[in-house]
């Protein structure tokens, strides 16, 4: 029942968009349901420092969308603008509109924000094991959303840990503290947590820094499978990873969106010279 509630809330986000927005989409973009996240003239400032200059970008449903670019390009900031965690940074100001399922996230009020965040799984580069057992780490979000049926939870925890390629290593010690796992294991635990609230969008920010190459390859395979159910936004500083996985790729540099398009095009014949330099590795 609680599970129903969660999915129903997720659905609400899509259908409860203000009427005006819906009409707009129906008339001008007849296949708007294809676009999962859209950025319309979005820009972000920290105080007076510009972290993202105004840009437009669309991310389609059930694709892997790669974002590449050097450090400080604003990639992490972009992810935080999707699930409204920039709210927690008092100096951060977002203008323009980020739309998830056609709904402007800045228009979401009250408890709906938490539903939005459950709608999106976030993995940041530094591994964070919560000081709870491995099991409770993964069961945390479902419990907060009101799911308490032990049997359902057991299944969900196992599924998420398997998807994050961690199950085999921790299945015999689910009651061990998450903080006592190795760095790479904690990072996979973070991925399992991001999947635990059954999101429709999964944002991965340089997720493979702490994970060994073999496991990374396995997780990449899982991502390709997950694409059937989820939209994946993959921020990576390994350009080859984006090339392997992404359907579309965007290149950011110095807080600016340089260009985005089909991955093959970005990697072979991009419109800007600087993009080519970056993907070929003679950047700088």
């Amino acid at each position: 029942m609680n599970q129903n509630e969660t999915t129903q809330l997720t659905g609400d986000l899509a259908t409860d968009a203000p009427a005006a927005v819906k009409v707009h989409h129906e008339s001008s973009l007849p296949i708007s349901s294809d676009i999962h996240i859209s950025f319309d003239n979005v820009s972000v400032k920290y105080g007076s420092d510009v972290a993202l200059q105004p840009f437009d970008m669309q991310i389609k449903r059930n694709e892997i969308f790669g974002i590449i670019g050097p450090a400080n390009a604003g990639k992490t900031t972009l992810l935080k603008s999707i699930n409204r965690t920039l709210d927690f940074i008092p100096s951060a100001k977002v203008s323009g509109s980020v739309k998830v399922n056609g709904q402007d996230v800045s228009a979401i009020r009250g408890r709906r924000v938490h539903q939005l965040r459950r709608h999106i799984g976030m993995v940041f580069p530094l591994p964070v094991g919560l000081p709870l057992s491995v099991y409770e780490n993964v069961a945390y979000a479902p419990r907060r959303a009101g799911m308490h049926d032990r049997r359902v939870l057991d299944e969900l925890v196992e599924k998420c840990l398997r998807q994050a390629m961690l199950w085999d290593e921790v299945k015999d010690r689910l009651d061990m503290l998450g903080t006592k796992l190795s760095g790479g294991q904690q990072q996979r635990l973070t991925i399992a947590r991001a999947l635990s609230h059954q999101p429709e969008i999964l944002c991965l920010d340089e997720f493979s820094i702490a994970i060994d190459p073999v496991t990374t390859m396995k997780i990449e395979d899982v991502l390709l499978e997950l694409k059937q159910e989820l939209t994946i936004v993959l921020v990576t500083n390994l350009v080859q990873q984006a090339r392997r996985l992404a359907d579309n790729t965007a290149f950011f540099n110095k807080s600016e969106l340089i260009e985005f398009g089909p991955t093959e095009k970005i990697f072979s014949e991009p419109e800007q010279q600087i993009t080519l330099d970056y993907v070929m590795g003679d950047f700088g």
């Binding site: 699930n83 965690t85 927690f88 408890r111 938490h114 539903q115 939005l116 965040r117 459950r118 976030m122 940041f124 530094l126 964070v128 919560l130 000081p131 945390y140 979000a141 907060r144 959303a145 973070t190 947590r193 991001a194 635990s196 609230h197």
Partner: peptide, 13 residues
């Protein structure tokens, strides 16, 4: 702080 951020990212109030 990272513990809090992790919880907020999962939609915890």
């Amino acid at each position: 702080q990272s513990f809090r951020a992790a919880c907020w990212n999962m939609g915890a109030t």
